[in-house]
Design a protein around this nucleic acid. Structure first.
Lengths: 232, 232
DNA sequence: CTCAGTAAAGTAGTCCGACCAATATCCGTG
DNA sequence: CACGGATATTGGTCGGACTACTTTACTGAG
C-alpha cells in the first residue's frame, strides 16, 4: 500500500506552491538566497528542468530573481516587485477592456490625488511643480509624456501608499498610453492636459483634497470619454 | 563581421516577448491554439526546454493555457484571466503592506458599491439579498464567510466593470481574509459585519450611490483600523 | 603584509534526446 | 451510421552535457 500522495496538478505547479508556502510561512525571507536549482530540485523531488520552470514562473511573478552565475534570491517583495505583472493587463487586454481599466485608474487616481493633497510636504510639492514646469516649457511630445508620467507618479507616491502608487503607475505606463491615446495626442490634447494639470497642482498646493479629487477625476475622464467615442 | 543580433536577456525572455507581441498585434487571438511546443521552439529558434519555460511563464500570467495531450491555447484574455496573479500580492505581501492593500480595497469597493447602487437591476439585487439572508441565518463561520464573499462579489459585478470586480474579488479572497483577520472573527465581528451589510444593502435598494459609498467605505475601514491597531 | 591578477570552483542558462501520460484522430467492426 | 479500440499527436517529466557568468580563493609581485 502506497502513501497517499495528494498529487494535484503538475510537479511544477506543486513546486511553485511549495516555494510560495516557504515564503508565506517565513522559511524564506525577502532578499534571501535560495539553494541552487539542483539542490532545490533534489529536495522537492523533481527534475532540474521542471524546477527551472517553477523558478521561471515565480521570477515573472516578481517573487524570485535569478542572477546568472550567482544564485536565486527572493525579491524584496515590495509592491513594485509583485505588481510588475499588473502592467501586463494594460498591455494585452482586448481593446474593449481599456475603458474599464481607465475607469479603475480614474477611481484610484482621484483617491490618491485627494490623499496627496492632505499629506504632501513642501519638497514633494516642489517636485510636482518641477514636472509641471517641464510640461509647459517643452514642445516635444516625448518629453511632455515623460514629464506627464513623472507628474502623476510623484502625486501617487505623495499619497503614501506604495501599493496604490504601483498600480496607478502601471495604469499610466507608456505602452498603456500608446494603446489608449493613439491619434489623440494633438496640440489640443496637450493644451487640455496642461490646464488639467494646473488645476490639480493648485488643489495640492491649497491642500484641498476634494478639489484635488475632482480635478484628477476630470482629467482622466477626458481620456475616458474620448476613448468611448472612438469605440463606436 | 556578424549581424548585430540585439540579444537582450535570456532566450526565454525573448520568446516571452515575442509571444506577447503576437498577441498584441493580433497574430494570436483569444482562444486560438498555438503551434506545438516543438514547432514553436523551432520557429523562434530555441530549444524545447527554454520554450517550455516561456510557455510556463505566460501560463502563470494567465495569457496561455496548456492542455495536456491537446495543445497550447490563448486564454480568453478576460479580466479574470489576466488578474489571476493579482491574488498573489494579497497572498505573500509582507504584513506591513496589508493595510495598504486594504486601503486600495476600500477605495475600489466604495466606488464599486456606489456605482452598483446606480445601475443594479432587480435580479441582481435579489441575489445580493439572498447572500444577506444566508449570512443572517447561518451560525457557521465558514458558511458566513462564503456568503460574505459572494455578497461583495455580487455587488462588485453589479457595478458593471469586470476589471474592477476582478481586483476587488482578489482583495477579498479567502487567503487574504485569513491573513488580515486572524483572530478577529469572533461573534462581535460577525455582528458588526451583519449591520454593515444591512446598511449597504439598504443603500443599494434605495439606489442611493452616496449612501452606498460611505457604507462600503465604513465596512472596510472597520477591518482596516483593527489591523492597524494589531500592528502596534 | 597588501593588493592585483588569475585560476578555480560554483551557479544559472541552454540544448538535446528519450520516455511517460493525456488527448485526439482514425479505422475496422457491428 | 455508431461504436470501440488501435494509433498518432501533444504536453509533462527526466537526465545529462555543455556554456556563460559570477564569486571565491590562490598566487605572486610590490
Amino acid at each position: 500500500m502506497e502513501v497517499a500522495t495528494p498529487v494535484k496538478g503538475t510537479v511544477t505547479q506543486r513546486a511553485i506552491g511549495q516555494i510560495k508556502q516557504m515564503i508565506t510561512d517565513g522559511t524564506l525571507e525577502p532578499g534571501q538566497r535560495l539553494p541552487t536549482e539542483r539542490d532545490l530540485a533534489a529536495r522537492l523531488g523533481l527534475s532540474r528542468s521542471s524546477m527551472r520552470e517553477a523558478i521561471r514562473a515565480l521570477t515573472v511573478l516578481g517573487v524570485l530573481e535569478a542572477r546568472h552565475g550567482s544564485g536565486i534570491y527572493v525579491t524584496r517583495l515590495e509592491a513594485g516587485d509583485l505588481l510588475e505583472t499588473f502592467g501586463l493587463v494594460a498591455e494585452i487586454s482586448p481593446k474593449a477592456a481599456l475603458v474599464e481599466l481607465l475607469e479603475v485608474r480614474r477611481i484610484l487616481e482621484s483617491a490618491a490625488t485627494a490623499q496627496a493633497a492632505a499629506r504632501i510636504d513642501e519638497e514633494q510639492l516642489a517636485t510636482v511643480a518641477g514636472h509641471l514646469t517641464t510640461m509647459h516649457e517643452t514642445s516635444d511630445a516625448a518629453d511632455f509624456i515623460t514629464a506627464d508620467m513623472a507628474f502623476h507618479g510623484a502625486i501617487a507616491r505623495a499619497a503614501g501608499n506604495d501599493v496604490l502608487a504601483a498600480i496607478i503607475e502601471r495604469l499610466s505606463s507608456r505602452t498603456f498610453r500608446a494603446r489608449v491615446q493613439r491619434g489623440h495626442e494633438d496640440a489640443d490634447a496637450f493644451a487640455q492636459a496642461r490646464e488639467d494639470h494646473g488645476r490639480i497642482y493648485r488643489a495640492l498646493q491649497a491642500r484641498d483634497p476634494e478639489a484635488a479629487r475632482s480635478a484628477a477625476a476630470a482629467h482622466v475622464r477626458v481620456v475616458e470619454e474620448w476613448l468611448r467615442s472612438q469605440l463606436d
